[in-house]
Amino acid sequence: MTDVQRVQVAPERLERWLAGFARRHPQPEPVVTPDAVELVSPDGARAWIETPWGTTSGDDPLADLIATATRPRRLGALLVRRNSHAIGIFDGAELIRHRVGRHYVQGRTKAGGWSQQRYARRRGNQAERAFGRAVQDAAEILVPVAGTLEAMILGGDGQAVRTVLADPALAALGPVVARHQHSVLGVPDPNLRVLRDSLPTFRAVTIRLNAEARGGAEN
């Protein structure tokens, strides 16, 4: 697929976006695929609305799409970088429990030789302790309720997130992560504000538009 633009639409604005698409490109026909609902208009405009929560073959796929996208869900959140982490549980739009931690991890050095090696070991030990505290908080907050979570919001540094999730203490989160595949959000150093902001970013609906559909597209 070439010359395609991606837009992000909040679930609460999806119905309005679909109505706008139909005004600009009359009589779009919805086609349901395993991971998207495709809109095909006679004027050549096409939109692929990604459906990470699954699709349905019901009589009104667009109504089902809106209902699925807007349904309140219970989600866990794990945001990790070397210097900080944020753990949380969202029940719908409400952050019902959270914990934030900050850590001191030295920056990189340009020194060479033995000094650089000692510095690297010290930095590695600091990062290991920081990730250990993230594991502890996730084990206390997320693991006990893992069976009630529909998905996990993952954010921060991808390697840091994978390192934390690989700890055996968080094995119960593995099925939750696998249930709803989503890329790690590139959030800044986690804090409470970043944690709260991760929810609308995670829930946003991704729509791909071809060249014919982009003229005057709303987002």
Rank of each mutant, 00 (worst) to 15 (best):
T2E: 11
T2Y: 07
V4D: 04
R6V: 14
R6I: 14
R6G: 01
Q8W: 00
Q8C: 00
V9S: 03
A10N: 12
L14T: 11
R16Y: 13
W17F: 12
W17E: 08
A19C: 12
A19R: 14
G20K: 11
G20S: 13
G20C: 10
F21T: 06
F21M: 11
R23G: 01
H25G: 07
P26D: 06
Q27T: 15
Q27M: 15
Q27K: 15
P28E: 01
E29Y: 12
V31F: 02
V31R: 12
T33I: 01
P34E: 09
A36G: 02
E38D: 13
L39W: 12
S41A: 11
D43K: 10
G44D: 11
R46E: 03
I49T: 06
E50H: 13
E50L: 14
T51L: 03
T55D: 10
G58N: 15
D60Y: 14
P61K: 08
P61N: 11
A63Y: 14
A63P: 12
I66K: 11
I66L: 09
A67D: 15
A67K: 15
T68R: 13
T70G: 02
R71H: 13
R73S: 01
R73I: 01
R74M: 05
V80S: 02
S84A: 05
A86E: 08
I87N: 08
G88F: 04
I89R: 10
D91W: 07
D91I: 01
G92S: 11
E94L: 04
L95W: 08
L95T: 06
I96N: 08
R97H: 14
H98P: 05
Y104H: 12
Y104I: 01
Y104G: 02
V105E: 04
Q106C: 01
Q106Y: 00
R108D: 14
K110A: 13
A111R: 15
A111K: 15
G112E: 15
G112S: 14
G112L: 10
Q116C: 04
Q117V: 11
A120V: 11
R121N: 10
R121Y: 08
R121H: 12
R122S: 00
Q126E: 10
E128R: 06
A130P: 12
A130C: 08
R133K: 11
V135G: 06
V135E: 00
Q136E: 12
I141M: 02
L142H: 02
V145Q: 00
V145W: 09
L149M: 07
E150P: 06
A151Q: 02
M152E: 08
M152N: 05
I153Q: 04
G155T: 00
G155L: 04
G156N: 02
G156V: 06
G156T: 00
D157K: 02
G158M: 01
G158T: 08
G158V: 04
Q159G: 02
Q159S: 07
A160G: 05
R162H: 09
L165I: 09
P168E: 14
L170G: 09
P175T: 08
P175W: 03
P175E: 08
A178C: 00
R179H: 07
H180C: 03
Q181K: 14
H182G: 09
S183I: 10
P188K: 04
R193W: 09
R196I: 05
S198V: 02
L199M: 02
R203S: 09
R203Y: 03
A204T: 11
A204Q: 09
V205S: 06
R208F: 07
R208W: 10
A213Q: 04
R214D: 05
R214P: 08
G216A: 05
G216H: 04
E218I: 11
E218L: 10
E218S: 01
E218Q: 11
